[in-house]
């Protein structure tokens, strides 16, 4: 038999020295460098694993002096974390062995039927399977984190009942409902009553045949504040049920800002109109009066009257300019909350 040249770190938890020797011998037959550590009780195993988690696999006998059976499996599984556990048992109790698999052990082997090759196969399979399982778990966690840690409120809702199936942290802090409150609500509960019929139509269009959908809506928070949101959603199967994942970006501030700019534009247009129609009137009058004053045949009395009119027009012009300045100062876009 060609030996596996990879290094394996193996922990054997076995109180019977004969059984331990047998397992070691079998392992050395198939593996070139088995780094075997042996302990004879649960307590020893616990202390060792707490210190050092770098085992590739744990081989566990089910009857130790300080613990046995199902209780032992549960305790070791908890210690093992990501390390696969293979159970070695002396009983030919198939029922219990089956149960042990349900408890999460990677495999069970009956000592009476053990050979070098069945042990090797089980060790290799268990390590490999656990590695793939860990990777899958890791990637699921990564995707869950992407959803949970997204700074944009994000939720999944059931397409048949409109009930929330999951919400992320950002949604919880943006809307003020707890995770549990959300899960008792429907998407409709976020829509202000007066918008419901319109929004309903939009929602009916977003059935599963629409892969992507986005729109602008008003949402209502737990404290009854109304915010403007831009949502986009996409179809997915959530635990086998048709659902949509929806992102809701708060654009309340953006909208207020645009409104303020529109008001500002309106005021600027007003000012431009005033410049042409109101400012120009006394100015044109002034110019007319000055033309008149430059005529030679004007008498002194008349000249006095016109000079006064010139001053009146100048005063009027001054007042208009002050009014415009005041109007301009009212435009303050930084005041938006």
């Amino acid at each position: 038999m060609i030996k596996d040249s990879q290094t394996y770190s193996i922990l054997i938890i076995e109180d019977n020295p004969g059984d331990k020797l047998l397992v070691e011998t079998y392992l050395e037959e198939s593996v070139l460098i088995p780094r075997i550590t042996g302990v004879g009780s649960y307590r020893e195993a616990r202390d060792l694993i707490k210190e050092n988690k770098n085992f590739d696999i744990i081989l566990l006998d089910l009857s130790l002096p300080d613990m046995r059976g199902e209780e032992l499996i549960n305790a070791v599984m908890e210690l093992a974390g990501n390390i696969p556990v293979v159970v070695l048992t002396g009983y030919s109790d198939v029922e219990f062995s089956r149960k042990s698999v349900k408890l999460g052990v990677a495999d069970y082997l009956l000592k009476d039927e053990l050979t070098a090759s069945t042990l090797y196969k089980s060790v290799i399979y268990s390590i490999e399977r656990k590695r793939i399982f860990n990777e899958l778990e890791e990637s699921q966690k990564r995707y869950k984190d992407l959803f949970q840690l997204s700074p944009i409120p994000n939720w999944v809702y059931d397409l048949d009942t409109w009930e929330f199936l999951d919400v992320n942290e950002a949604a919880i802090s943006a809307y003020g409902y707890s995770h549990n409150e959300f899960l008792k609500m429907k998407v409709h509960d976020l829509i202000p009553e007066e918008d419901l019929s319109d929004t309903q139509k939009h929602f009916e269009e977003t059935l599963q045949n629409v892969p992507k959908f986005s729109g602008e809506f008003r949402h209502i928070k737990k404290n009854r504040d109304i915010i403007a949101v831009e949502t986009s959603s996409t179809f997915l199967l959530y635990n086998g049920k048709p659902a949509r994942m929806m992102l809701a970006n708060d654009i309340t501030f953006k909208k207020k800002y645009i409104e303020a700019i529109e008001i500002q534009n309106k005021k600027l247009k007003e000012i431009a109109w005033i410049q042409s129609h109101v400012v120009r009137a006394p100015l044109a009058r002034l110019m007319g009066l000055v033309n008149l004053l430059s005529e030679e045949e004007i008498e002194t009395d008349e000249r006095k009257t016109y000079s006064k009119l010139v001053m009146d027009s100048a005063t009027e012009l001054d007042k208009i300019i002050r009014d415009i300045t005041e109007k301009t100062e009212q435009i303050n876009i930084n005041k938006i909350k």
């Binding site: 009137a281 044109a284 009058r285 110019m287 007319g288 033309n291």
Partner: peptide, 13 residues
Amino acid sequence: YESVIGYIEKPVT
């Protein structure tokens, strides 16, 4: 406007 035949910007000279 049909009736408008001229357009003068003030001041008139």
